[in-house]
Write a protein that binds this DNA or RNA. Structure first.
Length: 493
RNA sequence: GGUAUCGUGGCCGAGUGGUCAGGCAGAGGUCUGCAAAACCUCGUACAGCGGUUCGACUCCGCUCGAUACCUCCA
């Protein structure tokens, strides 16, 4: 467990040495999706980024409890809606039960995250299932004197809070600016201050998602579920809280204020935020309507896509950028990722069968050791997956050169290379082969027969037959590669 | 307007005060019956202008440009 993992803490805006509060245990909370629409590329980014964090922490030997919530209530459409809930609005449009909508899109989310090989978190709590915890949390804030009730709704008193604590410390905001710059919106007359946010909202008669509370039949405020469920499952102190950068303010800022008020202290040691996916330089998001769903990526059924892109292509594409940088989507970039990934996996296929040709070779100053160390170094430096991938491609070059007998490798190094690739490609980066899984002896036997026939026609310089076989196999998506020691084949174009 | 981030070669994208990121595309070569694959070589990249420095793409200042957040958004 002796590691020197550094991660960038949004709170301090510096890389900090990761020291868990209670090693070997690590508590990690990540903001999950609001389930009222099909997951798009933007949803894939935090899921994959924190999957990388989850996988690496486990690889280092930590016992990680990873909590990612499902938001199925509570987020207001906006203040003007007088409490209309996103889920409820969608339900009215489709004449479905709100929970039916939430269930449908939650299931869709799971299906697509599974396809991306994102590990399921330890717990995926739903906001609707934690009303009691949320109501209790509001009570605590009221008891501490940082909330006030108006007409059945409860608001957080930012002005009072700011006398003792610093609202805005996470996002670098100054309270005076917040007060000066918050737009005047209708329906805010209940608030003492425009910057105050709702902890509990009284439901209007037409509002169908509602729960009883000491203040009114209503629903919880925007930021409450994470405070309540984080505390419920990870305790009053936990290690990592993650989410998209767009949640920094006001969501996470308010979460800090809620926890500080209710518990008397903050809860999170390290705040991590992934950057956005952009399209034509602009954030891909629900509100801009410029998003492409994962379903559309996988099927190629979107006007902006010139082809379909597989789940692993998407995953690789995302991992090729550092999580704190914006990542610009384009067909060209995704095609580059697709080809690069193919090359990586072709080399892995060779690696499995690679043998040492000259047993006398010993390489005391091992390149492979350096390569492995560079991978760990990159991961320890704030999860720098692009550097890991760059090093893996150095390994690809070595694998191919050894395979071509242009370079030699010691048995020791070969073992280490296999282990390094297994660890980083599969365990940590979470990539997997997408070749159709027919590895049956049946197919292998058949292919051996076909290639033997082709080989004899080649020996007779019967290129017509030889090429005919190769072309026919290509149509079946079996690629034949001729080498010095005869031909090999692989599934895929 | 406020807060924050960023501007790297045809594209995507790392990184650093003084040798190399990497992938894709492109050019040339090796290999090959051809093709594919693979390997080797190649491109005077760091928005602009000043400053600090023996030396800056990297530090500082300014200018220009882009983005995010300030309303739900991953």
């Amino acid at each position: 467990m002796e590691s020197s993992l550094f991660l960038f803490n949004t709170l301090s805006r510096t890389r900090e040495l990761f020291e868990p509060i209670n090693p070997p245990f690590v508590g990690m909370y990540v903001c999950g999706p609001t389930v009222y629409g099909d997951p798009h590329l933007g949803h894939a980014r935090p899921a994959i980024c924190f999957d990388l964090v989850f996988r690496y922490l486990k690889h280092l030997g930590y016992k990680v409890r990873y909590v990612r919530n499902i938001t199925d209530v509570g987020h207001l459409e906006h203040d003007l809606d007088e409490g209309e809930d996103k889920i409820a609005k969608k339900a009215r449009l489709e004449q479905l039960e709100p929970m039916e909508v939430a269930q449908y899109y939650a299931d869709r989310y799971f299906i697509f995250m599974d396809a991306l090989n994102v590990k399921r978190p330890s717990i995926e709590p739903r906001a609707s299932g934690h009303m009691i915890e949320q109501i209790e949390f509001v009570k605590k804030i009221l008891d501490a004197g940082y909330g006030y009730e108006v007409n059945g709704s409860v608001y957080f008193d930012i002005e009072k809070y700011s006398k003792t604590f610093q609202y805005g410390k996470l996002s670098g905001r100054v309270l005076d600016d917040l007060l000066a710059n918050t737009r005047e919106l209708e329906g805010q007359d209940e608030k003492r201050n425009p910057a105050d946010f709702a902890l509990w909202k009284k439901a209007q008669p037409e509002h169908i998602m509602r729960w009883p509370s000491p203040w009114s039949d209503g629903f919880p405020g925007w930021h409450l579920e994470c405070s309540a469920m984080g505390t419920r499952y990870l305790g009053e102190f936990f290690d990592i809280h993650g989410g998209g950068m767009d949640l920094l303010f006001p969501h996470h800022e308010s979460e800090i204020a809620q926890n500080q008020s209710a518990l008397g202290h903050e809860s999170v040691k390290y705040w991590m935020h992934n950057n956005m996916v952009t399209i034509n330089g602009q954030k891909m998001g629900k509100s801009l309507g410029n998003f492409i769903t994962l379903d559309e990526f996988f099927s190629g059924s979107h006007a902006s896509l010139i082809q379909a892109y597989s789940p692993m292509t998407i995953r690789f594409f995302i991992l090729q950028a550092h999580y704190r940088s914006t990542l610009d989507f384009s067909n060209e970039a995704l095609q580059a990722a697709e080809k690069g990934l193919k090359r990586l996996f072709a080399a892995i296929g060779i690696l499995d069968h690679l043998t040492v040709h000259d047993s006398r070779i010993t390489d005391h100053d091992s390149r492979i050791t350096a390569l492995r160390d560079a991978c760990y170094e990159a991961m320890n430096d704030d999860f720098n997956s692009p550097i890991v991938i760059a090093n893996l491609f150095e390994g690809v070059r070595i694998i191919n050169s050894v395979n071509d007998k242009k370079e030699s490798i010691s048995a020791e190094d070969l073992e280490l290379l296999k282990k390094t690739f297994n660890t980083f490609v599969f365990d940590i980066l979470g990539l997997k082969s997408e070749l159709s899984g027919d590895n049956s002896d049946y197919l292998k036997g058949l292919m051996e027969l076909v290639l033997n026939i082709r080989q004899s026609s080649r020996e007779k310089k019967d290129w017509g037959t030889s090429d005919q076989i190769r072309d026919a196999l290509q149509k079946l998506e079996i690629t034949v590669k001729d080498g010095k020691d005869g031909s090999t084949w692989e599934l895929g174009k």
